[in-house]
């Protein structure tokens, strides 16, 4: 689990806090989505979780971040990486090898995984991300979505208990984005991996995440179960975050006093909402 208490961070040479006074607890098995406008501090928050801040990005670090009990200031990023795996938006530059298999081997070799265990880990990672058939393909010949899956597989092979992903679908089309979310859901549900996901695609977040954290100007302004956060749509709007259209619809229907239930998070639940209103009216 990740525990962040009273965290403020200012990049060296920066003029204002990139993060101010953040308190956040992420329990084992959680699926947390982080959303906010650009410059809100989302990426910096992920750097605080994987130790890049303050080890790689130096600056003024106040407060405390612990990952599975390890204080991030006392442990180097590569030590923390045994617990937290990181995936980034820029697909091409996070790939380090020319063949998928080598990409996955890189971390396994570095962390000294016993060689008789490597083959099994490799297969498991390829299987759980659904890319077994891409094992000997060159990275350059893959589509964007396949590359991102390979990047996730390379992290999964290291078996971290937490994965932190910074806009992993930023460069992907809707179908590939959904596939990435499906993989994360599977890792979360079947393997118990805690997922922390920075994402702009609010509709996918609402469908897949369990909790949402909203950031604005370096502060964490809202955090809680997805439907509770969507209830505060006005504060979301102030933070430059839109809500899914079906959620806006539900709010309109509430204003007209036609609907009093939970905000629907996807089309299936929106359908139930509309049909419910029409059948209630008939009673």
């Amino acid at each position: 689990m990740i525990r962040i208490t009273g965290l403020s961070f200012q990049y060296g040479g920066g003029e204002k806090n990139a993060l101010s006074d953040i308190d956040l607890e992420i329990n084992n098995g959680d699926f947390l989505g982080i959303i906010g406008s650009s410059g809100a501090g989302k990426s910096t928050l992920t750097y605080a979780m994987n130790g890049l801040a303050p080890h790689h990005f130096r600056g003024d670090f106040r407060g405390e971040v612990t990952v599975n009990g390890l204080d991030t200031r006392q442990n180097q990023p590569e030590e923390l990486a045994r617990h937290v795996g990181s995936v980034f938006q820029d697909i091409d530059s996070q790939m380090l090898a020319s063949v998928v298999e080598d990409e996955i081997l890189f971390g396994l070799e570095n962390f000294g995984i016993p060689h008789d265990e490597i083959e099994r880990r490799m297969n498991d990672a390829l299987e759980s991300t659904g890319i077994s058939e891409l094992r000997s393909r060159t990275v350059a010949s893959l589509s964007g979505g396949q590359k991102q899956k390979a990047a996730i597989a390379a992290i999964v092979a290291l078996r971290p208990s937490i994965m932190v992903l910074d806009e992993p679908t930023g460069e992907l089309d809707p179908q590939s984005s959904r596939m990435v979310f499906e993989i994360l859901k599977k890792l979360n549900e079947e393997h118990g991996v805690t997922i922390v996901l920075v994402e702009q695609k609010i509709m996918l977040l609402c469908e897949f995440a369990r909790r949402l954290a909203v950031m604005d100007g370096g502060k964490l302004i809202l955090c809680g179960p997805v439907k509770d956060v969507l209830d505060s749509a006005d504060r979301l709007e102030d933070a430059g975050v839109n809500i899914p259209r079906v959620a806006t619809l539900a709010r309109r229907l509430r204003e007209r006093e036609l609907y009093h239930g939970d905000i629907p998070l996807d089309i299936g639940r929106a359908k139930i909402m509309v049909e419910g209103i029409l059948s209630d009216a008939a009673l």
Partner: peptide, 11 residues
């Protein structure tokens, strides 16, 4: 499709 047209289709 976008959410509202998709909802309209399922309805």
């Amino acid at each position: 499709p976008a959410q509202i047209p998709a909802l309209a289709m399922t309805l």
